[in-house]
Design a protein around this nucleic acid. Structure first.
Length: 486
DNA sequence: TCTGGGGTCCTTAACCAA
DNA sequence: TCTGTTGGTTAAGGACCC
């Protein structure tokens, strides 16, 4: 999907269409998740510190991500992909590989292109958003094709043209070559894919190690036989928070670690897992990051156990100078969903949360009164309610709208919906206005009768009617496809 | 006013057991 | 019994991806 988060926000808010939109963390240490193409023209990029984005593009709309909405759209898109093939490998909310060959959909270039264009039409019809499609004989090439295709395009790499196409590209094009490897290769005099292929496997292995070197050499030669894997097991679950202000108070740090452990266990249990290895992550004031881990005798999903282990790990860490980030994770996962343990742990969690709250209130204030990283937990007390930029609300008198901004006891709302034809009116309220309430995201597109019935959307014949052909034709174009990233 | 959050995989070192 | 090899596990860090 093209600039996914930002595009979803523009679809949701007519007044933002055609304008720079930047989605990301809005706190003092936030970074950009996604910038709309209008904002990219100002040089704003993903992962850029928000402060820098504001300097480059002060007039953009700055919004907090709404994963609920993105997940809904993502499910719609993944459902369309599932109609093409049983082999769909999601990479993220907005990107996936599809093995068209396994779906029996497309074997020649022409058929693959047709399937890709149909998919793009369907995505637009169902979600209102644009997606880009890359078609090629391997995952690596499909991915590269999809990068070239966006925004709102389709690129097919013809079999036989791979090497020539890759040769002049910068090494950073290849998956697995990031800033560090790129710099490493540059110092060795290699800047293009052709340089890598020329250097030979032995040289790359010497430079980058056995695994990385060998796989990079194969990629540079245009070879990539990694299969599309539909379902992959989760390996770890973790949560982390960056604090608006560094934490110094040891007691406060321990409290936060406890909270993180609880949140981590909640996620762990929601995913139906337990785990053996507890990991504590600490990022210090100077951005240096360390992890400490402890492996238990057996897997657990008990919040008390995880919290204690995380606490022990914290004891071994020097935090003088301040802590910018804390994280708690669990790995070494096992399936673990016994009902009685579930109930038991839920009770303990509730009990410990009550105890934890009590402790927190007793604590003396830290020297810098840090505002914990924004947790968007909806707070019921209207006086404390946080109105997050971009979130949907309804007003008793004015109807549905979204938060344009808030501060000094006021919240500004623009009253419009995804289907409004003109930008909506703006009104400002007190943050505790009784008529104002948070609400769920509205659908971006009015439901089509056909799509709602679970039938093929406009213009699509049912792929179920087609029978898979023989697999003997091999990896031509169409055996892989990638959607673009935001 | 620099640098999020959630993951994956790889490498290295230390340790232990066979 | 001593020494060396191998292999598995644990711990820590780093690179990369979206």
């Amino acid at each position: 999907m093209d600039a996914f988060f930002a595009a979803a926000e523009q679809a949701s808010k007519p007044s933002l269409r055609g304008k720079p939109v930047i989605v990301g963390g809005l706190g003092p240490r936030g970074v950009v998740s996604t910038a709309s193409y209008e904002a990219r023209r100002f040089g704003v990029r993903s992962a850029m510190p928000m402060a820098q984005a504001r300097r480059l593009c002060p007039n953009a709309a700055y919004l907090v991500p709404r994963f609920q909405l993105y997940r809904t759209v993502s499910e719609q898109v993944m459902e369309l992909l599932g109609r093409l093939s049983p082999l769909v490998e999601p990479l993220s909310l907005d990107e996936a590989f599809v093995d068209l060959e396994a779906g029996g959909v497309a074997f020649g270039s022409a058929a693959a292109r047709e399937a890709g264009e149909r998919l793009r039409r369907d995505i637009r019809a169902v979600t209102g958003l644009s997606g880009s499609v890359g078609l090629a004989g391997s995952k690596m090439l499909a991915k590269i094709a999809s990068e070239q295709a966006k925004p709102d395009g389709l690129v097919l790499i013809e079999p036989g043209t791979e090497r020539g196409l890759l040769a002049p590209m910068p090494v950073r094009t290849l998956p697995g070559v990031g800033p560090a490897t790129g710099e490493h290769l540059r110092r060795a005099g290699m800047t293009t894919v052709a340089d890598l292929a020329e250097a030979g496997e032995d040289e790359l292995v010497r430079l980058l190690g056995k695994s990385h070197g060998a796989s990079l050499y194969r990629m540079a030669a245009g070879h990539d036989d990694r299969p599309v894997v539909a379902e992959r097991d989760t390996k770890s679950v973790s949560v982390e928070d960056t604090f608006d202000v560094d934490l110094h108070d040891r007691v406060r740090i321990m409290t936060e670690v406890g909270r993180l452990a609880d949140r981590c266990v909640q996620r762990l249990r929601a995913s139906g897992h337990s785990g053996r290895t507890i990991v504590l992550k600490v990022r210090r004031y100077d951005f240096s990051t360390l992890t400490r881990s402890e492996t238990l005798r057996g897997p657990t999903d008990d919040p008390g156990v995880v919290r204690e282990a995380a606490g022990r790990l914290l004891d071994s860490v020097d935090t003088t100078g301040g802590v910018r980030l804390l994280g708690v994770g669990v790995s070494g996962l096992a399936d673990y969903t016994q009902e009685d343990l579930f109930a038991q742990a839920a009770e303990e969690l509730a009990a410990e949360e009550r105890a934890g709250e009590g402790r927190a209130e007793e604590q003396p204030e830290g020297e810098e009164t840090p505002t914990a990283a924004a947790q968007a937990e909806p707070v019921e007390d209207p006086a404390q309610r946080r109105w997050l930029a971009g979130h949907d609300v309804t007003h008793a008198e004015y109807g549905p709208g979204w938060v344009q901004g808030s501060g000094v006891g006021r919240v500004t709302v623009r009253f419009e919906t995804p289907t409004s034809l003109v930008p909506g009116r703006v009104r400002t309220f007190r943050v505790d206005d009784p008529g104002l309430a948070p609400s769920e995201p509205l659908p971006l597109v009015e439901k089509l009768a056909t799509a709602a019935e679970g039938e093929a959307p406009v213009g699509q014949e049912s792929p179920l009617a087609r029978r898979p052909k023989s697999r003997s034709e091999g990896g031509g174009p169409g055996s892989g496809a990638a959607m673009s990233r935001p």
